[in-house]
């Protein structure tokens, strides 16, 4: 097990002034590809900070991303990191978790990836309460491909494929995740860095399908197409319109165009995970004959 402090010590001999989260990142890949004022970097910072604060063994943490702007997160994290196909981060992560149950697996991807093309995987994996931390950065738009409509685009918002404004109803993601069976559901914006970090840290310590939606600005596309102003103005919008209501009725947390963003920890409830249920069921039905996959995985070796 290598701890964060050891890592920091090693790194700090190389550069005198080091960013506190540098040990969690692949600094050889900097600068990153994200636009100025993009919110993804902030979310990464909060996640890295939470990893440190949670004191988890980083050698046992794997991160999986799909495709898109947020899909690049795995590529910058100094963990076992997988940049997979579009929409398939969750099932890929399911394989990692089941193939070596001791791993702490985080899925870090965007709204289009996880609930657009990957929507079916999202609901079923939540239903199974698969032991994954799923961080979804929601910028209301397909960023990497140039601003197309997303399953999260609010009604009337303009996108490059809805140039006259979106007329499709978007998902209410906390409601979706909770109704499918997620054991932890929270939503924050990029402005809530302390609360977001705390939420990540808390979720790292939980089991089951943990879903954290982070509302993040895309000033290059979403804000420009909708004339919402600069990065500073986007942050000010969060400041003025985010409302923390932990006990919100999840029916009421859908996001309207430039409307209130209800934030909070909506669900935090320990329920048996897929693996818990599998073990318990086989122990009950098969008794001594049951031989579970060891925590270190099903790798067969001499």
């Amino acid at each position: 097990m290598s701890t964060v402090s050891e890592q920091t010590a090693v790194e700090s001999t190389e550069s005198k002034v080091e960013h506190p989260i540098a040990p969690y990142l692949r600094m050889d890949r900097m600068p990153h590809i994200w636009c100025p004022t993009c919110g993804i970097g902030t979310v990464v910072k909060c996640y890295a900070t939470a990893l440190g604060e949670a004191g988890v063994d980083l050698d046992k943490v794997a991160i999986v991303s799909g495709i898109g702007c947020t899909g690049r997160v795995a590529g910058y994290m100094n963990l076992d990191a997988f940049h997979t196909t579009h929409g398939r981060a969750i099932p890929f992560a399911t394989g990692l978790k089941l193939g070596r149950p001791e791993l702490l697996v985080t899925v870090f991807s965007g709204d289009g990836d996880l609930v657009g093309i990957g929507g079916n995987h999202f609901i079923h994996t939540a239903r199974r309460n698969m032991d994954l931390l799923v961080i979804l950065v929601n910028n209301f738009i397909y960023g990497m491909t140039g601003g197309q409509n997303a399953p999260t685009t609010p009604l009337t918002a303009k996108t490059s494929t809805m140039p006259y404004g979106n007329f499709e109803n978007p998902f209410n993601l906390p409601h979706l995740a909770a109704s499918c069976g997620a054991s932890y559901v929270a939503r924050w914006t990029c402005l809530h860095t302390r609360r977001l970090t705390k939420s990540f840290k808390e979720a790292l310590g939980r089991k089951g399908f943990r879903f954290i939606e982070v509302i993040a600005p895309c000033s290059t596309l979403y804000a420009r197409l909708n004339r919402l102003g600069t990065g500073f103005e986007l942050m000010r919008f969060y400041h003025d319109n985010a409302e923390i209501r932990h006990d919100a009725d999840l029916n009421d947390v859908a996001i309207d165009f430039q409307g209130k963003i209800v934030c909070g920890k909506f669900v935090d409830e320990e329920r048996p995970t897929f693996i818990d249920l599998m073990h318990a069921h086989y122990e009950r039905t098969l008794g001594d004959k049951y031989r579970p996959m060891p925590p270190e995985g099903g790798w067969i070796h001499e």
Binding site: G95, L98, R291
Partner: peptide, 27 residues
């Protein structure tokens, strides 16, 4: 279940193949 193996019925074949690739990275 008698030999330390795990089978999961996924939601579709996209997911099945993705899970297999993911699991293979555990050896």
């Amino acid at each position: 279940p008698m030999m330390g193996g795990t089978f999961i019925q996924m939601e579709d074949e996209l997911a099945s193949m993705a899970a297999v690739v993911g699991a293979s990275w555990t050896g």
